[in-house]
Design a protein around this nucleic acid. Structure first.
Length: 289
DNA sequence: AGGTCAACCTGAGCGC
DNA sequence: TGCGCTCAGGTTGACC
């Protein structure tokens, strides 16, 4: 599920239980996710205090007072769950005793915070990743350094996108999924943005007019901002319910709506689904040219 | 160089 | 109830 808005929502949910707090215990329950975890990850985490939480593209970054940054990627199925540890004890001298409870299936990393929150990284498909890197070299990290601009930032604008798409043979759909061009968009929000802008996903990048790009850029921002605020509200609901961060309801105009009627006011066309570079694209053939 | 595609995994949903 | 098939919000590395 996680594209930029979901990652942003998860990060905001982690903030109140992690910021300024020490990690009391880190339970690394398997050797790897997509890649092996870094050497001695749990020792390097235990005792460290979170001094900053931020996001770059779909990566959550936790800066620690040890000078290292914990990088988290949720992959396709990664989620974070917050619960109260509730099963540790502390003696009168302040010695912390960790008594593990039964973790949920696919809970791979569990962090117990000083304030009592237990943060579980759960990822059935294990496409997610974690790494620990020098904070000062963070932006040289191989997963970070070739990322394009943030779609909500100032660097992402019509002249920029136009110059990147100019002369490109790949369809616009694939170009917008390319994290080197713009970072943080995924399949859902690309489909939604293209529908709003009236651009057919099959249209070749180099053949999208500057005028259309001028329309597209603000729609990309709108779609992301709306999703972030929707996430914010459902985050509050979820936190009350079960602490699960990451999965919430959105209403989409085209994504997942194959065969249903186009949402556009005067359109009765049915939404189509095609496969582009191995992924589903949903669009209206009448509204998107 | 640029573009496409299989591969990495598990689980949900659907038709039979 | 179960089997087999398709699909899933991401990314990389191998291949044309």
């Amino acid at each position: 599920m996680p594209e930029l808005p979901e990652v942003e929502t998860v990060m905001r949910g982690l903030e109140p239980v992690m910021m300024g707090q020490k990690i009391r215990y880190a339970d690394i329950r398997r050797p790897d996710l997509r890649w092996p975890f870094p050497e001695n990850m749990s020792q390097r985490l235990i005792g460290a205090k979170i001094v900053r939480l931020h996001r770059r593209s779909k990566y959550i970054l936790c800066d620690l007072d040890s000078g290292e940054t914990l990088l988290i990627h949720l992959g396709m199925s990664g989620r974070m769950t917050i619960s109260h540890a509730g099963n540790e004890s502390e003696d009168l001298l302040g010695n912390f005793q960790y008594k593990p409870s039964i973790p949920a299936k696919h809970d791979h990393v569990i962090l117990d915070m000083q304030g009592g929150a237990r943060i579980s990284f759960n990822d059935a498909r294990r496409f997610g990743a974690m790494d620990l890197i020098d904070t000062k070299n963070l932006f040289d990290h191989k997963l970070i350094k070739s990322l394009g601009p943030e779609p909500l930032g100032n660097e992402f604008n019509t002249p920029y996108l136009y110059s990147k798409l100019k002369g490109k043979a790949a369809p616009i759909k694939s170009a917008l999924l390319d994290q080197r061009i713009v970072s943080g968009l995924g399949n859902i929000y690309v489909c939604e943005s293209l529908w709003r802008a009236g651009i057919n996903p099959k249209r070749l990048s180099g053949k999208v007019s500057r005028k259309k790009i001028d329309v597209l850029v603000p729609f990309i921002r709108d779609v992301l901002r709306e999703a972030i605020s929707a996430g914010g509200s459902s985050l509050r609901d979820h936190r009350q319910a079960n602490g699960d961060l990451g999965y919430f309801q959105h209403s989409f105009a085209v994504y997942g709506r194959e065969g249903k009627k186009c949402n556009s006011v005067n359109c009765s066309e049915l939404i189509k689904r095609i496969i582009q570079s191995g992924r589903s694209s949903f669009y209206c053939s009448k509204c998107q040219k």
